[in-house]
Computed example of a mutant assay.
Amino acid sequence: MNSAHIIFAIIVVAGMLLSVQLRKLTIAAALMGGILSTLIYITCGVVGVILMAAFFIMGVLVTSWKMELKQQAGLAEKDKGRRKSGQVFANAGAAAIIGMLSLLFPKSHLNTPLLVAACFAAATADTFSSELGNVYGKRFFHILSFQPAKKGGNGIISREGTLWGIVGSTLIALIYGIFYGVSFDLLIIIIAGTAGNIMDSLLGAAYEDKGYLTNNMVNFLNTVTAVLIATLLQRL
């Protein structure tokens, strides 16, 4: 094992222990995060892990932002946003799967770093739009009927929340750009992340409310949508 692998292992283990200690992840969720980050590291290198870490850190920050206000309004996540293993897989599983597919099918010529970035752009957009949209949103409406609605429900969106989602996608794109330079790929990541976030709201309104999909399934399909959109856009 070379020094880079050893440093990665130390950082991941330390991150897992710290996340559990700070009650940001359950033990099972920390183990899931360690497995997924290792798969992403093997297939996408350190940049993929940085993107995953950026999503997690930003997600923790925006979830904690104005927590008392969210609690008073009944909008805060249970256990102050402490994530479980299913939630971790829902947000990062698609990125790990893309990495594994690139290894199993090298002739597919998947642009793994771009697709991984699209996954985390979508996950970050969803977190930003829901957490910050509920705080700063002024008028809320149902994404299918466009009728005014009370904030916090599935498929309920606001202009402010949508804009915050775009900010989340953009931040992931900028981090990607630090390592791979400024190119059309950055716009692909932003568009893919935003599209995934919109699909999240559509699926939540159409299927989660009716019990056909769980929230974790919807979040996973959010990232899958981003992968499909990024794949199409990069072929233009």
Rank of each mutant, 00 (worst) to 15 (best):
N2H: 10
I6V: 11
G15P: 03
L17F: 12
A29T: 01
A30G: 10
M32T: 14
I40P: 15
G48W: 02
G48K: 12
I50H: 08
I50T: 11
I57K: 11
L61Q: 09
V62Y: 13
W65K: 09
A73V: 13
G74I: 03
K84Q: 13
N91H: 14
A95W: 10
L103S: 15
L115Y: 11
F120Y: 14
A121L: 08
A123E: 02
D126Y: 08
S129M: 00
V135M: 02
Y136Q: 02
F140W: 00
I143S: 01
L144C: 08
F146W: 12
K151W: 00
G153W: 00
T162A: 09
T170L: 15
T170G: 07
A173G: 09
I175L: 12
I178G: 05
V182H: 05
V182S: 04
V182W: 14
S183K: 04
A192D: 06
N197V: 08
S201P: 13
S201E: 02
Y212F: 13
V218Q: 08
F220R: 15
F220K: 06
L221H: 05
N222V: 03
N222H: 01
V224E: 05
T225W: 05
A226P: 05
L228Q: 03
A230P: 09
L233Y: 09
L236G: 15
